[in-house]
Structures are given as structure tokens and as C-alpha cells.
Design a protein around this nucleic acid. Sequence first.
DNA 1: CATTAATGATACCTTTAGGTGTTATTTAAA
DNA 2: TTTAAATAACACCTAAAGGTATCATTAATG
Lengths: 148, 148
Amino acid sequence: MNFSKTTEYALRILSFMVIDEKRLYTAKDIFESLNIPFRYLRKLLIILSKSELIDSIQGKNGGYRISKNLNDISLMDIVRAVGEDPISNHCFFGFDNCAFEKKCAMHEKWDSVRKTITTVLSNTTLDEIKASGPHSFISNNSVLIKNV
Amino acid sequence: MNFSKTTEYALRILSFMVIDEKRLYTAKDIFESLNIPFRYLRKLLIILSKSELIDSIQGKNGGYRISKNLNDISLMDIVRAVGEDPISNHCFFGFDNCAFEKKCAMHEKWDSVRKTITTVLSNTTLDEIKASGPHSFISNNSVLIKNV
DNA sequence: CATTAATGATACCTTTAGGTGTTATTTAAA
DNA sequence: TTTAAATAACACCTAAAGGTATCATTAATG
Ligand code: SF4
Ligand code: SF4
């Protein structure tokens, strides 16, 4: 009942790149500011670039850059880009084949939870993340890394 | 962003046993009505009985029975009994050490999602599950099993 | 008191998510 | 045109969740 590490990483990466959305970031740049194992980060960057959320520039002086307007990238887009389908289970109990002629006590309640999460993720775009501040959380975390 | 299989199984087990809360169910009884691999189900029943949500009676004619009043067992209790801590990550991005002198755009939003889920799980008790019907979802699912 | 039908304990197997290592390719620039 | 600095591809390793197998223990009952 949490996002996978992979999804969290993807969300961190884009939220970090948003600090300067026109800048070309190398994997090394991102590694130095976020708490993500380097080679795994590399792998994720390839996935994200294939998903069209970021462009990749190969060769010397290459790197990655956000490829769309910030208000065209929602958190849902990011979550989906790495293959997670948030709250994919329609049924609270995980049943695939509930007939629900009579819905159980959890049906409506859980449906409402799912809608809430879906709405938050879909309605929050990267421009809102960017606007929300100096990203103290990221610099704090990078200090932790440098101490390791 | 879903419950683990284990948690779903636990929720199904208790929601099934609630149909007759005074009855002693054998693992076989439960297996025949729920879509849970038999040996894994056995393992979970042992965990649940250690967690005091159900009593186990050993020996011939033994089995399991709900051990408390239905309104004293919340869905949260069940989730916790199998070791899952729903939405344990306080931070949307999974950071352990965010200073948040200035909170990011997701902080309040995610906090609210977490509270919603926690509240639903804590406030729904087994008596409400019991009251919610003839459990058509379970019998439907057991038909599926019998066809396999 | 042996049998039988149930749970308990423990160890092992399988699949998947997360993470690492190595080599190939691309491209700017000396 | 060679070198260096970047990404791309692919294979492999590790840890955790999910699932299986075997044997031990308990207790009712003929
Ligand atoms: S009615 Fe209950 S069991 Fe059926 S799909 Fe809805 S939540 Fe699941
Ligand atoms: S402010 Fe943002 S980054 Fe910091 S703990 Fe809250 S959600 Fe996480």
C-alpha cells in the first residue's frame, strides 16, 4: 500500500528536473542530488526517455531534459510511465470476479478512495510541483548522500 | 499501490468467517470457499491466530473461530495482523529525511489521502462487513475454484 | 490405546522487484 | 581522427514476497 521504489524514484527524478526544466541534466547530475542507486537511476532514465516524458541527448555533453510543458505532465503520467497502475485493484479484497448483485460494505468506500488518489495524481502537474518551492527536501537528501 | 496478496487474503479470510462468527472453520472449509492456495492459507491462519484475531483449536474436530466481538475487529487490525502498515510512507516521494521548512505541493495532499485510508480501515469493523450482505462475492469466487 | 483429522513448525522452492556489471554506441572537442 | 564523456543495451545478481513440501503435535473417538 505504497508506491514501489521505482515509482518513487521516477517521481523524484522529474520533480528534481523541474527545478530548471530547460536544463540538460546528466545521470551524474541527478545522482548527486537524489538518493537513487546510480545504475538503477540510469535504467530508469532510459525508461522515462522512452516514455516521451524526457528527451535524451546521446554523446559527449549529452543528458536528459524534460520534453513537454510542465502543465502537460501529471504525476499520473509519471507513475504510469514506469509501469505502475495506482490502485489497479477495483475490488478491495482483490477479487477479479465479484458479481456484486449486492455490493459489500467496502465497495463504495474503496471506490471513493481510489477516485481520490486518481484525482490527486491526475490533477497535480509538474508546474505545481515547481511552484511549490525551493525543494528543500531534495537538497536535504543530497546532503545525506554526500555523507555516505 | 495495492495491498499485498497476503493482506488481501487475510481480509478475505476474516470477512468469510464473519458469516457465522461463532462457527469453527477448518482450513479446508475456508479453502473451499476462498481463492487462496491451501498451504499458504494454512500459514496465514497460524499468523492470524497468533495475532489474537482468531482462536485455533487443535486436534481432531479442530479449526479456527473469530475470537472477539465483531465490532472490536477493524479492517486495520486485520491489515496490521499480517504485518502490513498501510501507507506507511509519510512522504509522497518516499523520503525519510525531508526537513520541509517549506512543504512541497504534495505534502498536504498526500497527508489527506493517507488519513482517508487510515480512517476507512480503522472505522470499518467486521460487524459492518457482516451486515453488508449475503457475500455473493465469496460464493461466486468459490464457484470459480470448483471449476479448476 | 491406536487411529484419524485437525493445527504447528520448519525448511525449501519460485517469481518478481530492485540493483549491479560489462560492453557497445553516440557525439563533442582536442 | 582520436579521445573522452555521455547514453543504450543486455546480462546477471540479490532480497523479499508468494507458495510448496514434509514432518511433528494435538486431541476426539472407536
Ligand atoms: S462488492 Fe465487495 S467484494 Fe465485490 S467487488 Fe466490490 S469490494 Fe469487491
Ligand atoms: S514536503 Fe514533500 S518531500 Fe517533504 S516530506 Fe512532505 S511530501 Fe515529502
